[in-house]
Design a protein around this nucleic acid. Structure first.
Ligand SMILES: [Mn+2]
Ligand SMILES: [Mn+2]
Ligand SMILES: [Zn+2]
Ligand SMILES: [Zn+2]
Lengths: 155, 155
DNA sequence: GAAGCAGATGCGAGACGTTGCAATATCAGG
DNA sequence: CCTGATATTGCAACGTCTCGCATCTGCTTC
């Protein structure tokens, strides 16, 4: 337990192209990046940075936190990973191919739900119309009370 | 500079009632709390925890961070203060009487805007209808690109 | 105004990230 | 394969919070 991310045997994503993507941007292919990418390729759902570091360490015990965070930045720049924040502000990373989505966090029970892009469209459109503001749905994280928890709260 | 919070001479809020509010909940009136409340009473807009600690220190140099954060929790429980998170996940506090509102953060230029409750209503209603989820508007923080920045991005 | 019961504080440690810098390692070229 | 340019890494220090725990203190009672 801990995070909703989990290990899966394989993944349909073509992580092997990543090296080429890096090179195309003048970036380098290093053992540390290979390690994180391998870990990500086996990860499904959302994971915290700490969890990724732990998993990288199980592949390479010499893994350094700052290198992992920096690599996550690079991969996010390439569009391969995204992050949002939990209700406590901590980062949560997710692999993109699962589809663009936002997040809903219940402060009552701690549950999390994904808001698919089409469902978030209303929010996006609302702010685009009223303020010409382009919402970053992948970073969107809304907290409040889920149906079950708000019932309890209201007596 | 640093945060959008600023000092103002006085404030219309009735902070003097706070002691009574604390007592009503079995909580205590302490010098440390008095210090923070004094600082908050002079604060307008949004402030980070670090900024509040700094301001408390200028009133009482012996101020301890953990005490400030714990007091902020207490005051938030009383509904006197709220917090949301910036795009980086760091906390931003604001004094309530300025009205319930959410926040908009432009990742391009770093600007911040408040989303008044009525404007956020559309978002709230959307999630209430589709998921019976009660959005906490005061904790709402949406990031993306403002009008000016998205123009630049789109060539 | 002394005693006692919580509630608070101070402190130290720790989790999560970020940053600056010097030392390394990747990769293109010759 | 050696070389140089520069992207990355490792490391250490720091910033923002959070927690546990022993000590202390506000507040009620008598
Ligand atoms: Mn929060
Ligand atoms: Mn972020
Ligand atoms: Zn819930
Ligand atoms: Zn902007």
């Amino acid at each position: 337990m801990g995070s909703s991310g989990s290990y899966v045997p394989t993944r349909p994503v073509d992580w092997s192209e990543i090296r080429a993507q890096l090179r195309a941007s003048g970036l380098r292919w290093t053992p540390q990046r290979r390690t994180l990418i391998e870990v990500l390729s086996r990860t499904d759902g959302h994971v915290t940075g700490a969890e990724l570091i732990e998993r990288c360490r199980s592949v390479d015990p010499t893994t350094i936190p700052s290198t992992v965070y920096r690599t996550l930045d690079v991969l996010e720049g390439l569009g391969l990973v995204r992050h949002s924040h939990g209700a406590n502000g901590r980062e949560e990373f997710h692999v993109l191919p699962s589809g663009v989505h936002g997040h809903l966090h219940c402060t009552g029970c701690g549950s999390t739900w994904e808001i698919p892009a089409d469902e978030a469209a209303e929010v996006v459109e609302s702010l685009r119309a009223s303020r010409r503001f382009a919402v970053d749905v992948t970073h969107l994280s809304i907290s409040g009370q889920c149906a079950g928890c708000s019932e309890k709260t209201a007596h």
